[in-house]
Simulated scan of single mutants.
Amino acid sequence: MQILLPKLGFSVNEANLVEWMVADGATVAKGDPLYALESEKSVQEIDAPTAGIVKILKPAGEVYEVGTVIGEIA
């Protein structure tokens, strides 16, 4: 399953991927904290949408557009 950068607000088109809360290759359960995003107004933790092994495709500390594939859960 692809991990897409979500739309955090009506006018938000990009966000800063502040940190990955799991390591590349880590196993997560559905609902585990996965990464943190910062938009113009707030920092939000995003939970894993499914269980599996995380593959990080985009590094933290960068700004990405909504819909960018930042990782995968297999």
Rank of each mutant, 00 (worst) to 15 (best):
E38M: 08
M1F: 06
P33E: 08
V63L: 03
P59G: 01
S42W: 00
M1R: 10
P6R: 07
L57K: 12
I46L: 12
Q44V: 14
V43K: 13
I3P: 06
A48C: 05
Q44Y: 04
V22T: 05
L4G: 04
I3W: 01
I56A: 04
V54R: 12
L17W: 02
I3Q: 09
V18A: 10
V12P: 03
A74R: 11
A29M: 12
A26Y: 08
I73A: 04
L5M: 15
E45P: 04
I53Y: 00
N13P: 01
G67S: 03
N13V: 09
K58E: 12
S42I: 02
F10K: 13
G67N: 05
L4R: 14
E62M: 01
I56G: 04
V63F: 04
P59E: 12
Q2K: 12
A48P: 04
E38S: 10
E45D: 13
S39P: 06
Q2W: 01
V12F: 05
Q2N: 13
A26D: 15
Y64R: 09
P49K: 02
A74H: 11
V18C: 04
L34I: 00
V54F: 11
G52T: 09
S42A: 14
T68F: 05
A51M: 13
W20M: 00
Y35V: 03
K55C: 00
S11I: 07
E65K: 13
N16E: 15
I73G: 06
E38V: 03
V66Q: 09
Q2P: 11
L4Y: 15
A51H: 08
E45T: 14
G52P: 10
A29Y: 06
K30H: 05
I53W: 00
G52R: 10
E40V: 07
A74T: 12
A51Y: 09
V66A: 04
Q2D: 14
A48I: 02
V28I: 11
G25T: 11
M1Y: 01
A51I: 07
V28Q: 12
W20P: 00
I70K: 08
L34P: 03
E62N: 05
G25E: 13
A29T: 13
N13Q: 14
N13T: 14
V22S: 10
L17N: 10
E72M: 02
A29P: 04
W20V: 01
V66L: 09
D24S: 10
E38A: 12
T27R: 11
S42V: 03
V18K: 13
T27P: 00
K55R: 14
N16R: 13
E45C: 07
V69A: 11
Y64G: 08
V22A: 09
Y64N: 06
